[in-house]
């Protein structure tokens, strides 16, 4: 079986993840595990996950994302999701998934700004 891993970059005290291709279930779960491990290994207090290339999110991936955010919170880190496409936002809302307490930004740059402000606050 293919084993694709999503690269996680570290920049100062921030982890940056850019999801470049369609997520299958295994890759999504692997990503969850990798991210939590990376957080544990490093001193990262913030995470930006960029979803610009993603053209759909179903309830499974939404759950994985939501879980990642809750788990990161438990480990003391803040998560900002960036680049959710209009089509993706609309389908999420229609699925009834609001991702209520999630921080969002239009793009990676805005996301990093927002994270900085959140961490300073």
């Amino acid at each position: 079986m293919m084993n694709m891993r999503i690269p996680i970059l570290k920049l100062n005290d921030t982890l940056i993840v850019s999801i470049q291709w369609e997520l299958d279930d295994k890759t999504a779960l692997q990503f969850q595990e990798d991210l939590l491990n990376k957080m544990h290994e490093t001193t990262a207090r913030g995470i930006v996950i960029d979803l610009t290339p993603i053209d759909f999110i179903d309830s499974f991936i939404a759950k994985v994302l939501g879980d990642v955010i809750s788990m990161s919170g438990l480990m003391g880190a803040k998560v900002v999701i960036t680049g959710i496409q209009p089509a993706v936002a609309i389908t999420l809302i229609e699925l009834g998934i609001r991702l209520e307490d999630v921080l969002t930004a239009l793009d990676l740059e805005n996301g990093l700004d927002k994270l900085q402000k959140e961490l300073e606050a």
Binding site: I84, L92, L99, T104
Partner: peptide, 12 residues
Amino acid sequence: IQAADAVRLVGS
């Protein structure tokens, strides 16, 4: 409300 929620998701 749905529109506002969706706007929040795209980061605005």
